[in-house]
Design a protein around this nucleic acid. Sequence first.
DNA 1: CCTACCGATCGGTAGG
DNA 2: CCTACCGATCGGTAGG
Lengths: 208, 208
Amino acid sequence: MVELQDVTDGRRLRGARTRQAILKHAARLASAEGLESVSLQRLASDLGISKSGLFAHFGSKEELQLATVEAAAQIFTREVLVPGLKPPRGVGRIQALCDAFLSYVDRDVFPGGCFFQAAGAEFDSKPGAVRDAILERKRYWEDSLVRAVREAREAGKVQRGVDPEQLGWELHCLLAGANDRHLQTPEPKALERARRAIRERLEQAAAS
Amino acid sequence: MVELQDVTDGRRLRGARTRQAILKHAARLASAEGLESVSLQRLASDLGISKSGLFAHFGSKEELQLATVEAAAQIFTREVLVPGLKPPRGVGRIQALCDAFLSYVDRDVFPGGCFFQAAGAEFDSKPGAVRDAILERKRYWEDSLVRAVREAREAGKVQRGVDPEQLGWELHCLLAGANDRHLQTPEPKALERARRAIRERLEQAAAS
DNA sequence: CCTACCGATCGGTAGG
DNA sequence: CCTACCGATCGGTAGG
């Protein structure tokens, strides 16, 4: 009984590890070459398994794409949201969210820049479950910036006259632009421009 | 002789018209589905010609892509740069460039939003002639904004303390963000947020 | 009855 | 511009 259970658990554990390895590679590839371009054959040969091995994990290409979006969201949460939400509510948290995103871009967590920026642009005109999943995650990130501004304003750390939705969206634009520029001309100055713009926006918005 | 020449000219004219029709359709398709996804077969059947008919106009897929980028650039020039550069140098021209871009997004000149936004995101991690052509055009547009700010500053219409490269880049980020948001949630408010941000930035920068 | 794969091949389509 | 093809690769499935 115990032996049999061990074998079963071992198989499940191995399966889960393989699945994570597949999805991490798929997400990295997709950021650079496009989610649609990550073919099952390409993915299989990169990982040294067979194409039918992939089909044991994901029943179809769309399910693989949805699982890839999910895996990318976990990476984004770990690399951006967790460090960005560490400081207490206030201007410091808004700044930390922006810094965490810029660091995530600077460290090339995904070789093709922010996964959701790339996948969002690829799928924004392709209706379906994959587009919906990507946009839901993108919206959560944008909302996190808006929420951080709103909470800072409620705590009296940001001026009453500031519209959280407006400032949150502007910060998001600058961060997206920094990702864009980083991919076009990968020089330190690319991110510096965004840091400067964000600093100025936050200084203006901060309660005196 | 005359007859022969007429036939030749007629053929050339017809050829040029077909070429323009192909490229216009290719650019519109590419903005929504991706430049790489516009297959020769798809394009041929959409236009009611044969795949080899396309090869008579363009020797390879890459040449078709380069010609598509060129055609999209002509559309962008006509729809954004020409109206945007109409006002004399000064804050009015900066505003006109931004308004022209937002109108181009709002009118859905390309069904998938700004062609260069979409194609840039698709190719920014794919080295080659197509990426170079796309980024060259994107850079020209960004430089147009920077130039408009610099000229306004030189004319004393913008404060001395303003960095043209910085403000030009920030305006570009807001416009790109407006295009992004327009594709995600096509409501009038999407562009309104950008208009408000741009108005505030320009009021701040204007010489008093 | 489960899982994690294999080699081979299905009908179609890619660029050329 | 056409028909007629090529080597390869696409997403997906067969039996073992």
